[in-house]
Each structure stands twice: as structure tokens, then as C-alpha cells.
Computed example of a mutant assay.
Amino acid sequence: MILDIYKDALEYSAKDWKTLVILGVMCFFSFLLLPIFLITGYNYRVIENAVHGIINGRDPLPGFEDLIDMFVDGIKVVIVQIAYLLVPCIVFIIFALIASQLADFASVAIMVIGCLITFVLVVIACLMNQMGICHMAYNEGAFTKAFAISEIKKVVDDIGWFKCIATYLGLIIITVVISAVVTSIIYAIFMVFGISGAVLGADPSGIFILGLLFNSAITMFIVGPYLSIFNSRSIGLLYTMQI
């Protein structure tokens, strides 16, 4: 079932390359901050389609109409993400403050324990956060549903904690592998050009810089948006496993 989710999401994310470019342009202007909420809002729409769809269905990619609504959805998602990460952050700060009042071994021991507890809380918070966003999307965007802890926990219980964590680990691995493969291929091509130019007596530095710029462009306008949609689609489909 998890492999079916990955297969669906990989195919779904490549349905419309123009959408990837549009998201890439938004990413390019993300230093203005406002486009970040539009990107997040679009990913929310992907999740919304997924939680109301089925694996290997014929769901189309969301459009870019109603940008104001998409922007508002993006703000809601960011607030949810921040809220869920507050607890691990507060716990870490508490342990850091306690450790700062101790000395030597006791301080180190407290920090190690604090880091381990914080790590566990971060994993739980990230999982609950993503399922919370899916739960909000499934319930017609009701913001309070993102914090309905008992309902969200039941969703995760029904899916299975191990299956949820395994799916997330798989997403991380796939994301890293795709990014690494694309980057390696591009660098390999431009390295061949650079070496060939050097053999012919040309300065290869310009080719290497061009390769760096080309790789950055491909990552921003194609790979990044593709992986963003892939992850959002996968998370939404994971949520449907308990329905």
C-alpha cells in the first residue's frame, strides 16, 4: 500500500510541468515572503485533493485560481506547523536552561537527555502536524480540526504509527535520492564539457559556473516543486488509509 502511494504521487506530480514552473517562479520570489504562503497554500490544495481522492485515481493537479483563498490557506498551514513545533522547542529550552545551571558531567547528561526527548517530541509533532493539516483539509478547511488532538491521534492509530513513520522515512529517502541523482547527472554532464574544454585549451571555469547555475535553475523550477507536490500528495493519500 505504501508503495502504491509513492507510485501514485510520483506520477501525479509530473502531470503538468507548467505547474512546476509556476511554483518555481513563486519560489524564486520567496525572498519577498508573501509567495511562501502561496506555495504552502498550493501544497495544501494538493493535500485537499488527496484526502478526498483515492490511490491511483484520476485527480488533476490543483489550479491557481482564487489566489487570496490559497494565500489564506497557506497562512493557516504555517500557523499549524509553528504551533505543533512549539512544544518540542519549549522542552528543549527548559532542558538547556537547567543544564546551564549545572556543571561538567551533570550538564552534559541533562543536555543529552533533553536532546533525546526533544527528538522524540519533534518526530511526534511532525507526524501530528501533517495529519492535523490533512484532518483540516478533510473537514472542509475547519482550522480547529488541525488541533483536534484526540481525533488526529485516532487517525494515526487507525493507520498505524509504524506505517506512518515508515512512510515518512520513505519520503525522506526518495526526496534525497531524486535530488542527488538529478544534481549528479547535471554536474557529470557539465564536468565532461569542462574537461573536454580544458583538453582543447579552453578555460573550464565558465562551464562549471554555468553548470552550477543550470543545476540551481532545474532544482528551483522543476525538482523542488515536483518533490513538494510529491510529498504533499503522499501525505494526503496516507491519511485516506484510515477512512
Rank of each mutant, 00 (worst) to 15 (best):
M131V: 03
F221A: 10
L85Q: 12
Q81H: 10
I82A: 12
G63V: 03
I55F: 05
K7W: 01
T167D: 03
I186E: 13
E65N: 15
G24W: 04
Y138C: 04
C89F: 05
Q130I: 00
A99R: 02
I75N: 03
A125Q: 02
P204S: 11
I172W: 11
K154V: 00
Y138E: 11
H52P: 03
F95Q: 04
I173R: 14
V122W: 02
F193K: 06
Y226D: 14
M241P: 00
F143H: 08
A188R: 13
L227W: 09
A148P: 06
T40D: 03
F162G: 13
K145D: 03
V120K: 14
I165P: 05
A180T: 10
A109T: 14
R233H: 08
Q130K: 14
L238A: 08
L212P: 03
A106C: 11
P62L: 06
A142D: 13
G211E: 08
V72P: 01
C27G: 14
L97E: 11
G114N: 12
L213A: 14
L210P: 12
Y168W: 06
V72L: 10
V112R: 13
A14S: 15
I22P: 02
V122F: 01
M220C: 15
Q242K: 06
I174H: 02
H52Y: 09
L85E: 07
Q101F: 01
V177Y: 05
Y168A: 03
Y84H: 04
E140S: 06
Q242E: 12
F230P: 08
V123A: 15
N215A: 10
G41T: 06
N129P: 00
Y239F: 10
Y6T: 06
V78C: 09
C126D: 15
Y187C: 02
P62D: 11
N43A: 01
S205N: 14
Y84P: 05
